[in-house]
């Protein structure tokens, strides 16, 4: 649910980074935070455990400039990826306008990716969304590591909707902004169409 403040002429949208534990969701946000112009980004908040695993969410507000006299603000959230934090993931999906599914390309994480994608679909349905219509972008992260699945394999396993997909290495930033740009575009196009009602 986007929020349009006609009085201050602002459009606010919520984007959630979803995916299995340790796939690089927080790393995506950290890279965006590091590379964005300080005037265009707010403070990054991480509600994490002492070992820096996301406990509830990370939050990064971005302000990308104006279109048609509206300031555009995007609130980026990550979910905790570990399986047992499902209740928190459901809460964070509330009011989401677009999702980046961050997959871990390593062969050993194939099952975890599939499980997380299924979990996303279930949780979206539970929040009243149609998982086949919500703006979604896939990111195949950790492409720099050895023993990764091929793009064709990842596509076949995860990209049934044939949505935009990007190879990434979030630690070095490869693919991070391409993914962000793609999801922002989808969210704004969706907003222009009048959302998913």
């Amino acid at each position: 649910m986007s929020f349009i403040n006609y009085s201050s002429r602002e459009i606010n949208c919520k984007i959630v980074y979803y995916g299995p534990g340790l796939c690089g969701k927080t790393t995506n946000l950290q890279f965006i935070y590091k590379r964005m112009n300080p005037e265009a980004r707010g403070k990054m908040i991480s509600l994490a455990t002492e070992s820096e695993r996301t406990l509830f969410f990370d939050f990064l507000p971005l302000s990308l400039g104006e279109i048609r006299g509206f300031k555009t603000r995007f609130h980026l959230y990550t979910v905790p990826g570990q399986v047992f934090y499902d209740a928190s993931r459901r809460l964070i999906l509330r009011g989401v306008d677009g999702v980046v599914f961050c997959a871990d390309s390593q062969l050993t994480r194939v099952d975890a990716n599939e499980e997380s994608m299924e979990n996303l679909r279930v949780n979206l349905r539970e929040q009243g969304y149609d998982p086949d219509r919500l703006p979604l972008v896939l990111q195949y992260n950790k492409r720099d590591l050895p023993n990764v699945a091929s793009l064709a394999e990842l596509h076949a396993l995860l990209n049934r909707r044939n949505v935009p997909e990007y190879e990434a290495s979030a630690t070095t930033g490869i693919g991070v902004f391409e993914t962000l740009k793609a999801v922002i575009k989808l969210v704004l196009i969706d907003l222009k169409r009048g959302g998913r009602q």
Binding site: M1, S2, F3, Y6, S7, G128, Y129, D130, G195
Partner: peptide, 11 residues
């Protein structure tokens, strides 16, 4: 939620 977008006007 899948509620519609909220548009807040001046009044």
């Amino acid at each position: 939620m899948s509620q519609g977008n909220l548009i807040l006007r001046e009044p």
